[in-house]
Every structure is written in structure tokens, then in C-alpha cells.
Nucleic acid binder design. Structure first.
Length: 488
RNA sequence: GCGGGAUUGGUCUAGUGGUCAGGAUGUUGGCUUCCCAAGCCAACGGCGCGGGUUCGAAUCCCGCAUCCCGCACCA
């Protein structure tokens, strides 16, 4: 389906909707999860834990969202998490100063060139507005971090612009107390905050959003020494490099040099296996290798996991090789030693490098919804074909008619199941109407209580996708449902 | 932030100055109904915010906000 259909479903059924919408001063880029959205998100995160955190033996932390100024001095965000811009004094359009200068002078402008220097170059070469030819103003910066003041004296701190900084500042302690050996991965789910200039497309570009991040700390001399690689050597990867889409196994990707080392290939494979279980159509996905000018300021090699939707290609996960950018920065500023021993490398001291998988949860949720929502013309219904283990409401409980004895029995079944499963009891409207309502929110199973139930203690389980029904005994319902709702 | 379009019950929408803002869908209650959006009765619920023009504004003007598209940026 498309963006409009997903948005309409989200608004009308409570997956997500704009924040503070009853007030006129509500700001763009903030959205709330409604009841169904929370449940879907929680199940998504649980699958992420299962397929990545537990599978790989990662450590998970939950850091604070407000972090001290020094963190972002060390990480480079205060310096680099912004773009130099110039505004035209005539038409007031805004341009990237570094790109403009680079284009006109036909050179590459160093990323960290000072604003004054850029301004001087603009003056010296008489660069004017490319749109209207007007005179350009002075170079300024827009930092994307939200500044907050803490305590009575109001000292500066910032809302973290990416969750991973918590992991980096905690690294030395965690490595010691958790008896870590390289390579080790530390994971975190939490909120990040970016003061986007133009938030857009509901869940796709938010100012406050969830990330699930994984930071893999590794010895840069041993990037091919991953014994776990054997588990994924046959996993197929779709890697886009320039104009070429390679569809290869993880093993072939290494042999053909499409992915630089086994460590990167291993984690791309884990990610690929994870996403194939979310219900996203993997034939509409790719790992796109980023060109030099597309990468974040801290990355040396970067792949974006992208999914094609009605909005075009959407970036769900940034996979960045951050080298020792962060640990080195924090080590220099904090004086905390971040070097660790690598016993596998002759007991040498090493400052670990980092490969990260930085996942946008809202974007993932959106893609799952768009790829799962289908119009079933034959049966005149809208069906959200979520994988059963991701569905917000897992089971509908429906008395076939509203009659005392049938209702009583249905309520009995409902009470029996409600603590173990997310069940929804519905006795209003015709049975077909109730099935349709459940289909639209992705409920995989509906249990119907009818007259036969009163006679022989069996109920029907109706499957959302096939609309088929089977009869099972009430006593076996619990096991039956648990089996059907278990992740693969 | 710039340019363009839009904003009417939960959702989709009709309505371009003048009767109680109409419909569809939905929701709630009732009747009917034993397997896939049936029917009947009743009820609920709306003009994004602020200012202006006018005897009178959902409708015209201005400002703001939000949403959508393009540019730019990004998980």
C-alpha cells in the first residue's frame, strides 16, 4: 500500500498520531504511539533483542537522554553536527556554504573549514546566490542538538543526538566489569533528539525518535577473525555499490571484496536475517555503500540498509565503521584510558575500533506497516498481514451471537487467555464485520464461540490471511496459540 | 528555512458570504442475526489557531501552526 493508506490506518486505529495536536502551537516532528503502535513497537524491539542482542551475546544498557557538554565536545557533535550555511540577502534562500564554495572553485572544501574562512572565500571569489544572483550574507551554523540547562545554575547539557554516545562513555567500565573480550557488542534502545530543520512525513523524520543501536568494539588488526562468521556464511546479502546491485552470500561478498571484512559481513548478515523476520519484503531492500560525500563525519566505511516504499528508498539502518573516532575523542578529553587487552592478539594493548548498526525504529515500523498492509479485493477487506509474533492484538474473542449462554462462554475463554496473550473481546456487530475490524489491525487469529462450543467444548480459530477455520478444544487453546505466536 | 498545495465529526469528504454545516463511514444503545463489512430504529460527534473586512465568514484578507509535494538535511 502507500503512505496515505498507512497514515489513514495509523490515525483511525491508533497506531500513531501527531503530538500535542489539540494545541495550535504544537511543533512539527513529534508523534505519539497509540495503543496499537506501542504494542507493535514493543514486539519489534523484542524481536530485535532475540535476533541480535541475545543471538550474538551482546550487552544491553539504557543510558540517560541528557548528557553533559563534554560528551559532545569529545564526540565532535558540537563542532561537526551542523552545516555551514549562507543566506541570500535578496531572495533569502539558504545554501550549504561548503558545497557552494566547492562547486564554484571546483575543489573539495575540507569538512572542518572555519566559517570565517568560508566567508572569506565567498568574498574573495565574489560568489553570489546561485538562485537569484543576489549577495550572500555571512556564514553561520545551525546545530542540530537540543540544548537544555540543568539545575539551578543552568549549566549546559544536551539531549543526545544519537544513543550510542552513552555506550562509548560507558565502555571502559563495561569492558572491565562484564569480563569482555574483543570483539564485543553493546546495544541500546532509547530516544534520540535532533532539531531537524524540516521534519516531514510523520514517522520518517522526527525530532524525537527511538533508535536501537549496536556498537561492535573490535581489534582493527583482527577484522577477519570472527569465528561466528560460519553461522552466516550462506546468508544472502543485497549490496548496492555505485550502480551495481550484488546479490551474494556473505561468504561470496568477502571473496569478491564487496564487503571489506568478515566482521562487517557478519553483522550485515545478522541484520538481514533480523529484517527478513519483520515481514519487510527483502526483495525491496538493499545495503547501499555510501560514497565519500554521503557519509557522516565520523564514518570511514558506511552502508545504509534501505527499503523501498511508496516514498522511495528509505534508510532504516546506518551501518558505519566509526574506527576509533569516538573512543579516542573521549579518551583524550576525559583522560580515561579506553585501551584494552586483546588476548587473542598476543596480549597486546589496543584502542578498539567501532562498527555500528544504528537503527531507526519508527522508520522500521513504518516500513513494516506499509509492506504488510494489503487490499484484499476478492474479500472486500483491508488486511494488515503482520507476522503473528509482531501483531499488537494477537487474538480476537468473538461470540457468534449475543446470547447469554454463548456470551458467557466467550467471556470465560476471554478471561482464560487475557493474561497470557493480547486478546480483544468483541461482541458488537455481525461476525463478518468483527472479522474485518480485526483484519485491519493485523490480528492473526480470531476465536469464535458458537452453539457447538456449548455442546462439545470446542471453538473455531480463524486465520486472518487465509480466512480458514479449524476447530480446537478449549483446553488446548493455550498451547495452540502459544505455538502459532512463537517467533521463528 | 525557501517555493507550491492543503486544513470541515474518530476517519474520508460536500459545501466560495445569508435557513439549525450535508453525506459516507465509524462509535454507542436496541431489534434481528449461528461464520465473513446484511437490514431496521435511535443517539453521539465537526469548520486548525489568532486577528481583520462585513449587517452577516467554514467561505474573502492578513498572520501563525500543522500536514503534503519539491529543494536541502537525516535514523
Amino acid at each position: 500500500m502507500n503512505y496515505d493508506a498507512v497514515t489513514e490506518l495509523a490515525l483511525s486505529r491508533g497506531f500513531y498520531f501527531p503530538s500535542c495536536e489539540i494545541y495550535a502551537d504544537a511543533q512539527a516532528g513529534f508523534w505519539e504511539y497509540g495503543p496499537l503502535g506501542v504494542a507493535l513497537k514493543n514486539r519489534y524491539v523484542e524481536l530485535w533483542r532475540r535476533e541480535l542482542v541475545r543471538r550474538d551475546g551482546m550487552l544491553e544498557i539504557d543510558g540517560s537522554q541528557i548528557m553533559s557538554r563534554s560528551v559532545f565536545v569529545a564526540s565532535g557533535h558540537l563542532e561537526s553536527f551542523n552545516d555551514p550555511v549562507v543566506r541570500c540577502t535578496k531572495c533569502s534562500s539558504v545554501h550549504r556554504a561548503d558545497r557552494l564554495v566547492g562547486e564554484v572553485l571546483n575543489t573539495i572544501v575540507p569538512e572542518r573549514m572555519a566559517d570565517g574562512e568560508l566567508g572569506a572565500l565567498i568574498l574573495k571569489h565574489g560568489i553570489r546566490c546561485p538562485k537569484c544572483g543576489g549577495e550572500l550574507g555571512s556564514v553561520s551554523r545551525f546545530n542540530m542538538m537540543f540544548k537544555v540547562s540543568v539545575g539551578a545554575d543552568g549549566s549546559d547539557a544536551y539531549l543526545r543526538p544519537e544513543t550510542c554516545q552513552s555506550i562509548f562513555v560507558d565502555f571502559a567500565r563495561l569492558f572491565k566489569i562484564m569480563r569482555c573480550k574483543l570483539p564485543v557488542a553493546i546495544a541500546q534502545v532509547g530516544k534520540s533528539f535532533r532539531n531537524e530543520i524540516a521534519p516531514r512525513q510523520s514517522l520518517m523524520r522526527l525530532r524525537e525518535f527511538y533508535q536501537a543501536e549496536i556498537e561492535v568494539f573490535c581489534n582493527p588488526r583482527r577484522l577477519d577473525a570472527i569465528d561466528r562468521f560460519d553461522e552466516v556464511r550462506d546468508v544472502m546479502l543485497r549490496v548496492q555499490d555505485g550502480d551495481t546491485l550484488h546479490e551474494v552470500s556473505a561468504e561470496q561478498a568477502i571473496r569478491k571484496g564487496i564487503v571489506p571484512n568478515r566482521l562487517v559481513a557478519y553483522y550485515l548478515a545478522l541484520l538481514s536475517e533480523f529484517y527478513s523476520k519483520t515481514g519487510i519484503d527483502m526483495s525491496r531492500s538493499r545495503f547501499r555503500r555510501l560514497a565519500e560525500d554521503e557519509k557522516a563525519f565520523y564514518a570511514t566505511v558506511a552502508y545504509d540498509f534501505e527499503v523501498h516504499t511508496s516514498l522511495g528508498w528509505v534508510e532504516l539502518v546506518a551501518c558505519n565503521y566509526r574506527s576509533d573516532h569516538d573512543l579516542k575523542g573521549h579518551m583524550l578529553l576525559s583522560k580515561e584510558n579506553m585501551e584494552v587487552m586483546d588476548v587473542e592478539d598476543g596480549n597486546s594493548k589496543v584502542l578498539p575500533h567501532v562498527f555500528e548498526l544504528s537503527m531507526g525504529i519508527e522508520r522500521s515500523i513504518y516500513c513494516i506497516l506499509e509492506h504488510s498492509l494489503q487490499e484484499d479485493r476478492e474479500n472486500d477487506r483491508l488486511v494488515l498481514r503482520l507476522r503473528p509474533y509482531l501483531a499488537p492484538v494477537q487474538v480476537g474473542i468473538l461470540p457468534i451471537v449475543k446470547k447469554d449462554d454463548v456470551e458467557a462462554k466467550a467471556l470465560e475463554v476471554f478471561r482464560m487467555l487475557r493474561k497470557e496473550f493480547d486478546v480483544f473481546y468483541d461482541d458488537s456487530g455481525s461476525i463478518g464485520r468483527r472479522y474485518r475490524r480485526l483484519d485491519e489491525i493485523g490480528t492473526p487469529y480470531a476465536i469464535t464461540i458458537d452453539r457447538q462450543t456449548l455442546e462439545d467444548g470446542t471453538v473455531t480459530i480463524r486465520e486472518r490471511d487465509s480466512m480458514n477455520q479449524v476447530r480446537v478444544r478449549i483446553e488446548s487453546l493455550r498451547d495452540e496459540l502459544a505455538g502459532r505466536l512463537r517467533p521463528p
